[in-house]
Design a protein around this nucleic acid. Structure first.
Lengths: 221, 221
DNA sequence: CAGTGTGAAGTTGTTCACAGCA
DNA sequence: TGCTGTGAACAACTTCACACTG
């Protein structure tokens, strides 16, 4: 695959992209507790990041801080939301209304964190026709028509592993452009489709390895 | 003495740690389809990684390949499982039997990917006393005793955000040493406890940004 | 040849050091 | 003094180049 074709806009570091929602979540709680301003060192200490990291990440969003005072919380929240496109109504379809799908339909504030689920689809007639957390579960038959009618471009995939790839091929053919993949399968798609694979297993691996390592080094001490 | 002997003094790159379960998952499928050997370039092409990356990642696990032929799939699978500690029975408690908790109880092969959930806990009496996917849901009251009795050190946290930190403090006091945190709150713990924060939101941010970016650059072409 | 294995080069991300500010 | 902001040093990770192997 070619390197990035010349970008007028420089691209944002992916680690920054992943930290920004963490800041956002933290800042929204801070805001609720009545604070008006907050400094990068405070955020850093709370979330375990170096304070310069926080300053640089926030700078990406365009928010400006004031020496000795820090940032206006409301302003930073606005800038992060703007920057990430969270204030746009990014409407998405959920594919697969199993346990994980149900969990996402009920996931708190998902629509404030970028994605608004407006319908769910499943091929199992036992699941379709119902409503969960206010979201209708429809039969996959209706996917193509509804996608066009509502002009939805984003899908969240929570099907069983066995059908994940074939369902992916189908929804891309129907016009889906971006997929958040929560199935435990690494999807293969053509270059014009964006996939974000979220492997639960990866996190388990990191946790276990850190834990095993900490146990080893503890009785070496 | 080879660089990666069984006694790893230096730590493994975290990206490698996250890729290994992805390989594992892919290889297990490849194995089922009857293949005996597989090469790094093939794995790389399927999963979107550079082939040298794959070679180096696999080398960390201690598996050896043969030029022109590749790796014995069964052997690599063994080595990855060993290396990540997935063949040890890492018993864990699930805290919070809501939607996401229920999804995890039913998550396919979780026990083959490092963690075996042996009980779930919830403070809501409506949820306790039941069994989901073969896992008993108990009242939080019983947590302390049962943790000691069964000597469980790992917890998977799927509580609502509001109580996540206070529940964390409690289970750590009870002796939990490692926490896979799936609640949308960044937990603060003392240095001797391992936490793996898995923010769903972060993945959405990355997906959206890539998508928005791809749309921009598409009509520049 | 088509692959592994590995040191070196290149790239990306993080931390340091310090200037400037109120 | 406590903060932002930033260029420079550093560390981590990825990709390249190539020797080696059956």
């Amino acid at each position: 695959m070619s390197k990035h074709s010349e970008n007028t806009e420089f691209s944002i570091p992916e680690p920054t992209l992943k930290r920004l929602p963490v800041y956002l979540n933290y800042l929204q709680h801070a805001k609720e507790s009545g604070l008006l301003t907050i400094s990068a060192p405070v955020i850093g200490k709370a979330l375990g990041y170096d304070h310069t990291q926080v300053v640089k990440d926030i700078a990406y969003t365009g928010a400006k801080g004031r020496p000795r005072i820090g940032y206006n919380i409301y302003e930073v929240v606005q800038h992060i939301e703007n920057f990430l496109g969270f204030n746009l109504k990014n409407e998405a379809f959920l594919i697969g209304a199993g346990n994980l799908g149900t969990a996402l339909m009920a996931y708190p504030n998902l629509k404030d964190f970028g994605i608004q689920l407006i319908a769910a689809f499943d091929s199992d007639p036992d699941k379709t026709g119902k409503t969960k957390s206010g979201i209708n579960i429809l039969h996959t038959d209706k996917f193509k028509d509804l996608r066009e009618k509502l002009d939805v471009r984003i899908a969240v995939l929570t099907t069983p592993a066995e059908v994940a790839q074939q369902v992916t091929d189908f929804i891309i053919e129907c016009g889906i452009e971006a997929i958040w993949n929560l199935s435990p399968v690494h999807l293969q798609v053509s270059a014009n489709v964006i996939v974000q694979n979220t492997s639960m297993y990866s996190n388990v691996a990191v946790l276990l390895k850190k834990w095993q390592h900490s146990k080893k080094t503890q009785h070496n001490k």
